[in-house]
């Protein structure tokens, strides 16, 4: 299963339009489930829902993940150890999703883009290179500092 998720705070219609086009072309090898959040465009060719209190089980069940560049989605995908690609939502204030993905890509081997039209090429690359969130650190250095300073 391929899980597509865009979080709760911003619409990302371009992503779902592109996913729908690719579904129409039978491009994906697997079924697709989309979490659409505040998006107005609802993909016609796959199962979808807008919000759910906890999407952890979709991360667990997915074989491949497509995420927007928000923290929860991107780090959730990294943490899951599944192959994934990330798209920066242009609506993010000060383009911070692109900045975040850019910085993250210096530490982890991730595929990301500003252009939804890149999904096709990134998907193939990610599958063939089997890029996963391996080596993702869950350390909490800031937590240690806070404990010392409470």
């Amino acid at each position: 299963m391929i899980f597509v998720t865009v979080g709760t705070t911003m619409p990302f219609d371009e992503l779902f339009i592109e996913v729908d086009i690719l579904l129409n072309e039978n491009y994906f090898d697997d079924e697709v489930i989309c979490q659409t959040g505040q998006s107005k465009y609802i993909p016609k060719n796959c199962e979808n829902f807008n919000f759910m209190p906890n999407v952890d089980r979709y991360f667990e069940e997915a074989d491949f993940i497509i995420v927007h560049g928000g923290t929860g989605s991107t780090l959730g995908a990294l943490q899951s150890g599944k192959p994934f690609i990330a798209l920066a939502n242009p609506r993010a204030e000060a383009d911070h999703q692109a900045e975040f993905l850019q910085e993250l890509s210096k530490e982890y081997n991730i595929y990301w883009s500003r252009e939804c039209s890149d999904i096709k090429s990134m998907y193939r690359k990610a599958i063939s290179n089997n890029n996963k969130g391996t080596g993702f650190s869950k350390s909490c250095t800031l937590g240690d500092w806070i404990l010392e300073n409470i």
Partner: peptide, 9 residues
């Protein structure tokens, strides 16, 4: 937020 790398929220 960790997403803020260069531009403050």
């Amino acid at each position: 937020s960790i997403t803020r790398t260069h531009t403050p929220s």
